[in-house]
Design a protein around this nucleic acid. Structure first.
Length: 770
DNA sequence: GCAAGGTC
């Protein structure tokens, strides 16, 4: 039996289809769907199915020093047990195995991991490697006709990255977390990619804060021939020391002097008219970064944009969305694809217009890779109704980008008019789109025109109005998500598959808030601490050096052991500095965490109250003075607590929100909640329909630990009969008793709305269910 | 409870 192993399910399906001429059938092996034809099985992995980790005895953060991770053994364990089990089952029976993972470094490593799993159960079957850069018939058949071997050096390069990232990330994260006394999920996370990315944001924020604005002046005049309708705006300019044109005047006296002359004048003379055309070339094909950039421009954040693209890929409508490639492969036939799209609404007209062009020659970017093509639509075109609104919007963007890369260039007419006013020069620029070219099929760019009337040299124009604008230089903008992705790419931080996830991680770790992402106090402190004591991990240089080392390993110039050894020596040096400054670092991180996360002051000792998590997992608000002060307040266990700005009038404490995806809710003031929970304590309203007859259980209104309310049996947990109640609003139990269930009607009084007649809790629940 | 990289 022969076994083919690919990187993912979709690729396995395609390979099986191509090699079996669509005769392959599906089969379940250890709960995994695989493909079978003749004597061949083909299965897909899910990327890495094993992951690096330290042995179990290193799991205990409290009893193992972070520095001991520097020399700890790094092992591999199955992270996708069912897929590993399926691979084991098939590999043990195989006479030959073919590794068909993606054609890139990480694919080589994933293939080598599969090889190791195969060898563990089968030491004799030959293991070949095939490489193809697109999942098309000719490419795939060619690769299988001429198989190659696994490149163990290339895989070792990937393994070096895994080990170095784990050792640096885990040891430093534990060190900073323990030094700052963080518990629960409030850990202080550090890594080769996330920390330099965070530093980009923090550095920019520092620039913005330290920015010292300068005053400057600009002078404008509205010029016209006969009436104001015809007027256009011209701006004063001069040649500076470097003989370049400049518009900004830095000296107020000079500005006022020039403005005085312009304001006094009544006429301008046209000195020069420059009329030229400019070619506006169509954009390059979508790689992941270009796609995220374009999706950003129509309102999608990086991660949601990728999620939608991945869904479209899974449905077969677009090609693989994680790619660095900006050059269409030779086997893509744009004309054939256009013809398919020309039969699909609403693309008919645009596709046909492109087919009518004299020639169809796609644009190309600078990066050409071997793993996947640029993102483009497939031959399988969905109907608009078959997609959700967001999916269609992204799908249309991808289709139109494909169109744009095949379309002709646009042409702009650029008109520049220079005039003289009292010996000063002013200029006006007009632009008109004379040939829309690719803009006709790709309407996402700004094509606003500025018209200026036709004037000729020597014309005299009236000065309708003039202005002296006082302005100030402005700090740079924060990085938006797409700018950040671009910046990460240019620095080599992360990969096409991870950059959007890294940004998401910064939000999860409370390092950034808002959009564009703004670094929090904690983020600044973490960056400061790592810059000072663990410099290497805060700098993009670490990645650059790792890339060089990986290239050397792949080329055989050095070895995995050599590279990881010298990396460990560096990490040891970092830890020598860190250990000496442990208290300082702890103090630095702790004070800031207190300020940004504090619920308020402890009523018993005045220290800050902080959201905490006990070792049991239960959440509470605890006093920073612990163990000297043991004051606590309960919190729900569902979700992560987030301290809001809003303050409680009664207790002066901040309201707390519990972040739990779609179940996110505002818990409110923890002290009020504790008081209300005590007030509503088990008000009995009737008999339990489940167990009153046999055990005497009664129904009572309860507020449970999570903060929500319910009607439940007093014999809980022996009887778990319960009925839901709304979380918010004051509860009134009326004298109105339900004939069917012998329970009183309940009314909910909410602020800003009329009372909600809930009625008998059982009737209410039955209505709600139906 | 740690990283980054795959993919779902």
């Amino acid at each position: 039996m022969e076994l083919i192993v690919s990187e993912k399910y979709n690729a396995a399906e395609r390979i099986a289809g191509i090699l079996s001429k669509d005769s392959a059938t599906r089969e379940q092996v250890s709960g995994v769907t695989v493909f079978k034809w003749g004597g061949t099985y083909c299965m897909g992995l899910a990327g890495h199915v094993v992951e690096v980790d330290f042995p179990d005895e290193y799991n205990e953060w409290g009893s193992v020093s972070p520095a001991s991770l520097i020399d700890a053994e790094v092992t591999k364990r199955a992270s996708k047990p069912d897929i590993v089990a399926a691979l084991n089952t098939l590999a043990s029976e195989a006479d030959r195995v073919v590794i068909a993972t993606d054609y890139d470094r990480e694919g080589e490593l994933i293939g080598k991991e599969a090889y190791d799993l195969v060898r563990a159960v089968n030491d004799s079957a030959p293991v070949d490697r095939v490489r193809f850069s697109s999942l098309t018939g000719p490419e795939v058949r060619n690769a299988f006709e001429d198989p190659d071997e696994i490149d163990f050096d290339l895989a070792a390069a990937g393994e070096a990255r895994q080990r170095i990232d784990l050792r640096w990330g885990a040891s430093l994260t534990r060190f900073l977390t323990l030094a700052s006394n963080q518990r629960g999920d409030g850990f202080v996370s550090v890594g080769r990619v996330q920390t330099p990315t965070l530093k980009l944001l923090v550095d920019r924020e520092r620039e913005i804060e330290n920015f010292d604005p300068d005053d400057y002046w600009e002078i404008y005049a509205d010029l016209g021939r006969t009436d104001e309708d015809d007027s256009f705006e011209a701006q004063y300019f001069y040649l500076n020391d470097q003989e370049n044109e400049a518009e900004r005047l830095w000296d107020e006296d000079a500005a006022t002097a020039v403005y005085g002359d312009v304001d006094d004048a009544s006429e301008a003379t046209v000195e020069r008219v420059d009329d030229r055309t400019r070619t506006d070339n169509p954009p390059i094909p979508f790689n992941t970064t270009e796609f995220i950039k374009a999706a950003n421009a129509i309102g999608y954040d990086a991660k949601p944009a990728m999620n939608v693209a991945e869904d479209l890929y899974d449905d077969g409508y677009v090609t693989y969305p994680r790619t660095d490639n900006t050059v269409y492969p030779d086997d893509l036939d744009p004309r054939a694809l256009l013809e398919t799209l020309s039969e699909a609404s609403p693309f008919e007209a645009d596709a046909e217009a492109l087919l009518d062009q004299e020639s169809i020659s796609p644009t190309a970017g600078e990066t050409e890779t071997t793993d996947h093509p640029p993102i483009h639509p497939t031959e399988d075109v969905p109907k608009k109704k078959a997609l959700k609104g967001r999916e269609w919007e992204i799908y249309e963007l991808i289709v139109r980008r494909f169109f744009a890369t095949l379309a002709d260039a646009a042409t702009w007419r650029k008109l520049r008019v220079d005039v003289d006013v009292a010996g000063h020069s002013l200029k006006a620029n007009g632009s008109r789109l004379v040939k829309p070219g690719y803009h006709a099929v790709y309407p996402y760019y700004d094509t606003e025109e500025t018209t200026i009337p036709a004037v000729t040299e020597g014309d005299a124009l009236q000065i309708v109005e003039s202005r002296l604008d006082e302005k100030q230089t402005r700090p740079p903008n924060r990085y938006g998500q797409s700018k950040l992705v671009e910046k990460m790419e240019s620095l080599g931080l992360g990969t096409k598959s991870t950059r959007h996830n890294t940004i998401e991680k910064l939000y999860d770790r409370d390092y950034v808030t808002g959009n564009p992402p703004e670094p929090t106090e904690l983020a600044r402190k973490v960056v400061s601490a790592t810059e000072e004591y663990g410099a290497h991990v805060a700098s993009a240089e670490m990645t650059a050096q790792l890339e060089d080392d990986m290239t050397a390993i792949a080329d055989g110039g050095t070895t995995l052991d050599e590279v990881t050894r010298s990396s460990r020596e560096m990490l040891e040096d970092v830890f020598e500095d860190l250990q000496g400054a442990r208290d300082e670092i702890g103090e630095l991180l702790r004070t800031e965490i207190d300020e940004s996360d504090s619920v308020g002051d402890c009523p018993e000792c005045g220290e800050p109250l902080l959201p905490r998590q006990a070792n049991s997992g239960s959440r509470f608000v605890g006093c920073n003075g612990y163990p000297d002060c043991e004051f606590t307040l309960p919190l729900p266990n569902k979700g992560r607590p987030h301290v809001l700005d809003e303050l409680c009038d009664d207790h002066g404490l901040h309201h707390v929100k519990m972040i739990a995806g779609s179940k996110t809710f505002v818990f409110g003031c923890p002290r009020c909640q504790q008081r209300d929970a005590a007030d509503t304590d088990d008000r009995v309203i009737g008999d339990c329909p489940e167990c009153h007859a046999s055990e005497g259980g009664e129904l009572a209104i309860k507020r449970v630990h999570s903060g929500s309310r319910l009607v439940g049996c007093t014999r809980y947990p022996d009887c778990d009969y319960s009925l839901p109640l709304p979380r918010d609003g004051e509860l009134e139990v009326t004298d109105d008793v339900c004939d069917d269930h012998d329970l009183p009607a309940v009314v909910i009084h909410q602020e800003d709305s009329s009372p909600w007649q809930l009625g008998c809790p059982i009737c209410n629940y039955e209505n709600y269910k139906s």
